[in-house]
Design a protein around this nucleic acid. Structure first.
Length: 271
DNA sequence: CTACATGTTCAAGA
DNA sequence: TTCTTGAACATGTA
């Protein structure tokens, strides 16, 4: 799940559950999930409380009252689950933050692609990883600048976190569908009006997804995400995943940049 | 058993 | 340097 809207939903969940409680213990099932060694992590965090969060793209940062900054990345399937220690630990909660209150925050890592570790600061992390401005923050000018200099195809470039942060595979398809741009159009052939529409589509898709707490089933029915075979859509009919909302043609499936890609061959034309 | 998956990173070759 | 492709990571699900 974790693209920008999911991570924003996790961030709000983290803020609502896990602030201002001193950390009592930290359990880590697999040290490969850590980007800071376990000893340093526990020495730093035990006894401290989280006091705030920040999100940039798919990256979540949590700040402690001791001045530490914890970075969390959810990989492909990460999640958070807050629960009382008297209950059984959630499935795949491979890292557990135990608070003195008796409650725990589980970092759910089904596939072990998730990562947690201390960073010096948000700014230094972003710089080191070359993370571009967040999809909800980036200006039209900055987005245009980052895209115009590239000759690669638009879809893989949108997935590149140094172009704009937070866009993953389904959002890239949704944004391009809303903007009526073919996923294989080269970036440097986009017109100014396409950049404008693209910028608006990014905001629209991200804001809509966040409003629905990234619950795909309730996205507007003109979203192409319903073509993906995920979950049940309330708008679905038996062959929902094949029809474009334009009603004229079936959604095409292909591979672009090595990733599964859904688009409408009528609405999204190459120039 | 096989194929595929929402992400990132690295290697190799064009 | 830039871009593309493919593999790797580890596991769950269809």
């Amino acid at each position: 799940m974790p693209e920008l809207p999911e991570v924003e939903t996790y961030r709000r969940y983290f803020e609502a559950t896990s602030l201002h409680q001193p950390l009592d213990f930290l359990e880590v099932e697999d040290h490969k999930l850590l980007t800071t060694d376990y000893a340093t992590l526990t020495e730093t965090l035990i006894g401290q409380a989280f006091v705030g969060t920040e999100r940039v793209g798919k990256n979540l940062f949590a700040f402690t009252d001791g001045g530490a900054t914890l970075h969390l990345h959810f990989g492909m399937t990460g999640d958070l689950e807050y629960y009382h220690s008297s209950l059984t630990r959630p499935r795949h909660a491979r890292i557990v933050f135990g608070f003195r209150s008796g409650f725990c925050l589980g970092f759910i890592c089904p596939r072990k692609f998730e990562r947690i570790g201390l960073v010096e600061s948000v700014a230094s992390y972003l710089q080191k990883k070359k993370i571009a401005p967040d999809g909800l923050q980036i200006s039209l000018v900055q987005l245009t600048k980052n895209l115009q200099k590239r000759k690669a195809l638009i879809k893989p470039t949108l997935l590149d976190q140094s172009t704009v942060a937070g866009i993953g595979n389904w959002i890239a398809d949704e944004v391009l569908f809303q903007a009526k741009i073919h996923p294989e159009q080269p970036c440097n052939t986009l017109t100014d009006s396409q950049f404008l529409v693209l910028h608006q589509a990014i905001r629209h898709v991200l804001q809509t997804a966040i409003e629905h707490e990234a619950n795909y089933d309730f996205f507007p029915k003109d979203f192409i995400i319903h073509a993906r075979e995920w979950g049940e859509s309330p708008y679905s009919v038996p062959d929902r995943h094949l029809d474009c909302p334009c009603g004229k043609v079936r959604i095409a499936q292909s591979r672009v940049g090595g990733r599964a890609t859904y688009f409408c061959p009528m609405c999204q034309l190459l120039p």
